[in-house]
Amino acid sequence: MQRRQALRNIIVVSAGAIIFPHCKMEPAPLQGYKNLMLNVDEFKFIGDLANSILPKGDLPIETPEPVQEFILNMVNDCMPLEDCKKYVAGLRGFISLAKEKYDSSFSKMTKENQLALFNSLNEKTEETDPEKVSIWESMQSFTDLTKRFTVQHFTGSDYFMTNHLDWQFLPGEYNGKVPV
């Protein structure tokens, strides 16, 4: 029951955030992602979340852009407007869920709690109210997409492609029968 109550609360909060995005004293929307209209904190949060999903540790990964920039480029530029809206709703729902469940901002939570929160979205919601179900699904879609693009940013990097996928820009030759 506690969980359900918590979920109700975040749905109210996040729905408020969707309907009245500028009512609170929020940082100004970030330029460059016109379909998302995120603020600086939300932008930073995406980076925190991505680094929790896939911590790079000491791996020498260099990419042309920070991970949160890549994720938002892909969502903002390459997804239908409806999906962008859903992504933002899911993002805001997720931030609220962290506050409700752990009384903390995501970045200050322990690693374990961060991942527990992330994984909790794998479950089906117990809610039946279509609006609440919709918010829950937005959060699921948000975490799925964020993971997908985080992984793509990582596996598409120079380091990963060269060291783990045998990438060669100039192979020059082809060998059709090489022992594994």
């Binding site: 999903i53 992330f118 783990h164």
Partner: peptide, 24 residues
């Protein structure tokens, strides 16, 4: 045939899975 990549898990587990040798 391409290299197998294990996309399972989350957090360090995911990092370890992705970078582990998973054959072809």
């Amino acid at each position: 045939r391409s290299r197998a990549v294990n996309y399972d898990g989350i957090g360090e587990e995911l990092t370890n899975n992705l970078t582990a040798e998973a054959g072809f």
